[in-house]
């Protein structure tokens, strides 16, 4: 998921207030920014929404990597519009987090110096045009699994941001699958490219949901607060069940020898990703961690003079207007 392994914060608030708060959540009431909320709820949300926002922002890079190499004018426009949406989604999410008392610049600084994380998936490289298909199909597909239920999350601004995001996001996965269809039905080289992309992105996509959290206290707390709606395993299973038939339709092979339909559970049995690799990526040892953070830092540093100048201009003019009054 875009927010992985978010640790919930312990809360040391008045038990009576906590119980009342939990009762409101259980009754399906939304929490709004000015409402009283447990400190742990607030902090956990900042971490989760922040991580989600950072993922959108860093997530621009692997796809942005192919905008200047898109094969047709239409593909270029579609990809650009999609990556632009990701910037928008980051913006909406930062806005939701800001209602909790942390500014966007503060969150940005925390991303840039490594204090806050983003999804592991964006630390994998995009090597061929088929990767644009695989990212849309698999990565957005996995993200949507999580985002759709989050439209019902308990924190109002987060839920509203997710509604907007889901509405816009619906074209992302389709454009990815559309690219895959063209590739899988194309020349032998294109078919190889498509299979190669699936081979490289299958397990990283499964990792997006995070390791099994059925015994995690953090997840239990987040689920009680309705800021996490499903367990990681539930979502992963749903994703596999949905995606395998799509791969078959494309005539591509999911790179998992153990994959088999399990009639009894009504879903596929499948191999777990290499969780050691996952933890390596989270620690900063993914193939692109260094490049991604360097790129974000460079954009931020290079843009400092612009942000400062626009602020200075606005202040100068506000002062001038006041002086003229």
């Amino acid at each position: 998921m875009y927010a992985q392994m978010v640790k919930s914060e312990a809360t040391q608030d008045d038990p009576a207030k906590l119980a009342a708060f939990q009762a409101r959540i259980d009754a399906g009431e939304k929490v709004e920014p000015k409402d009283w909320m447990p400190e742990g709820y607030r902090k956990t949300l900042i971490r989760q929404i922040g991580q989600h926002a950072h993922s959108e922002i860093v997530g621009q890079l692997p796809e942005g990597n192919w905008i200047t190499r898109a094969p047709t004018l239409e593909r270029k426009a579609i990809l650009l519009a999609k990556v632009q949406d990701e910037a928008g989604h980051g913006l909406y999410l930062y806005g939701a987090a800001e209602t909790l008392g942390v500014s966007r610049d503060e969150m940005t600084e925390m991303l840039l110096d490594g204090r806050m994380k983003y999804s592991s998936i964006f630390n994998y490289p995009t090597l061929t045009w088929a990767d644009m298909g695989a990212v849309g199909w698999l990565v957005d597909g996995a993200a949507i699994m999580n985002q759709v239920p989050l439209q019902r999350t308990s924190f109002g601004p987060y839920a509203r941001a997710m509604v907007r995001i889901c509405k816009e996001e619906s074209f992302h996965q389709r454009q990815g699958f559309d690219i895959m269809m063209k590739m899988a039905g194309g020349t032998p080289a294109q078919r190889r490219m498509a299979q190669n992309a699936l081979d490289r992105f299958w397990f990283p996509a499964l990792m997006m949901f995070g390791p099994s959290d059925k015994d995690s206290v953090h997840s239990a707390q987040s689920m009680a607060w309705k800021i996490k709606m499903n367990t990681n395993d539930e979502l992963r299973q749903k994703f596999v069940d949905q995606t395998v038939p799509q791969a078959e339709y494309l005539g591509l092979t999911v790179p998992d020898d153990t994959l088999a339909w399990n009639e009894a559970k009504g879903g596929y049995d499948f191999a777990e990703p290499d969780w050691a690799e996952f933890f390596d990526v989270l620690k900063g040892n993914g193939p692109c961690n260094v490049d991604r953070l360097e790129a974000r830092n460079k954009a931020w540093d290079d843009g400092a003079w612009v942000r400062d100048a626009l602020m200075a201009h606005a202040e100068k003019h506000a002062n001038r207007e006041v002086a003229a009054e």
């Binding site: 922002i57 621009q60 890079l61 942005g64 905008i67 200047t68 004018l73 239409e74 270029k76 426009a77 650009l80 519009a81 990556v83 632009q84 910037a87 928008g88 980051g90 913006l91 930062y94 966007r104 790129a295 460079k298 954009a299 290079d302 843009g303 400092a304 612009v306 942000r307």
Partner: peptide, 29 residues
């Protein structure tokens, strides 16, 4: 302009630049 994607000084500007690039690509077509 599309080369700026993901690298602008501030998010709002990233989105605005992409709009310009998209308009220009559409006109090109």
């Amino acid at each position: 302009v599309s080369e700026w994607c993901g690298k602008a000084p501030v998010l709002e500007e990233d989105i605005a630049l992409a709009n310009v690039a998209l308009d220009l690509i559409g006109q090109t077509q």
